[in-house]
Amino acid sequence: MYILRNREVLDQCLSIAILYLNDPTCKGTLKNGRLVFNYGSASKTCGTTLQNNDTHFIFKNSVGTMDGIGMISRAKGLNLTFFCTYPVIHFISMPIRIQATKSVITKDLSTEGSYQISMTPFTDATFLNTFSGNVTLEDQMYIAVEVTPFDSSQVALVLNNCWATPVNQSDSSTCWDLIINECPSPYDGTVKVFQNGNSTVSQFSFRMFTFTGFSNKIYLHFKVYLCLK
């Protein structure tokens, strides 16, 4: 969605009827003094381009005029380019210990875009039923990490690293690696990666454990990044 303040249009002496996005079929609707363009789904991109660099990927579009397509024009032109940027790398720490509820991290990135990363435990490799009940050392934990609200045909979530600590501190000196450079840790034979970098959801599993000399709580931490498909 893009919102154009009506004053910007009036200052240019332009009619909203001749304004459109990169795709001329995508026109705006005047709502409460603002011109609103709705787009963003896989079936309605409205000419949005998607680019990336080492640190961000960028959705880019522009508002322009469709007057003057014929031989002559006496109307003023307008071309306002706008974009939304998203950082591609994040270090994420789940604020709660492993338990049978969904944990959500919301990233509000000032002038940048915002998205959510959620972690959910499941009962088995089908990833259909969320885990319920107490966790025991005999349990194989099935974890799904998902980023929203991106289109999975354009953006994929990659778990680069995942590690556990006995306390809610990602830099704790006591830690255990589960995923290293997108692959199962060679030091833990119980880790299995089911899906990673294929869509907006990554899935893996490991057998539950505790840290010797600590409580029975473990906390998961991730280094994740987003990539264009």
Rank of each mutant, 00 (worst) to 15 (best):
F209S: 00
D177N: 13
K217F: 11
S132H: 08
G47Q: 07
C26K: 11
T65L: 05
D67L: 03
L14T: 02
C13S: 15
D177K: 09
D151N: 15
T120C: 05
N22F: 04
F211R: 02
N168F: 05
V63T: 07
W176C: 08
N22Q: 12
W163K: 08
D188N: 15
C175R: 12
A144S: 15
L109I: 09
Q51G: 13
V104M: 06
Q203R: 15
K102R: 15
H221I: 08
M66Q: 14
N32E: 15
L78C: 14
S114V: 03
T210D: 11
L159E: 02
I89F: 06
L50K: 10
T136S: 15
T111E: 07
L4W: 03
M66T: 15
D151E: 14
L14W: 03
M119T: 14
N6I: 12
I179V: 11
V145D: 00
D177R: 05
C175M: 11
I89D: 03
S205C: 06
N53M: 02
L226E: 00
Y142V: 01
S114D: 13
I18V: 13
F150L: 00
Y142D: 01
M94S: 13
L78N: 12
M94T: 11
C84V: 13
S118N: 07
L19I: 09
V88Y: 03
T111F: 03
T120V: 12
K31I: 15
F59A: 11
V155H: 01
S110P: 04
R74Y: 09
D11S: 09
M94D: 11
L30W: 06
I72M: 14
R5F: 08
D67F: 00
K192Y: 10
S185E: 04
V193G: 00
D54N: 15
L157R: 01
T25E: 10
Y2P: 02
G133T: 05
I96V: 11
K31W: 09
A144I: 04
R207N: 11
T174D: 02
G70P: 01
L220E: 06
C162D: 00
I18Q: 08
F57S: 00
P121H: 00
I69A: 15
D139G: 01
Y225R: 07
K217Y: 12
T85D: 06
E112C: 09
N181E: 05
S215C: 09
V145H: 02
R207D: 07
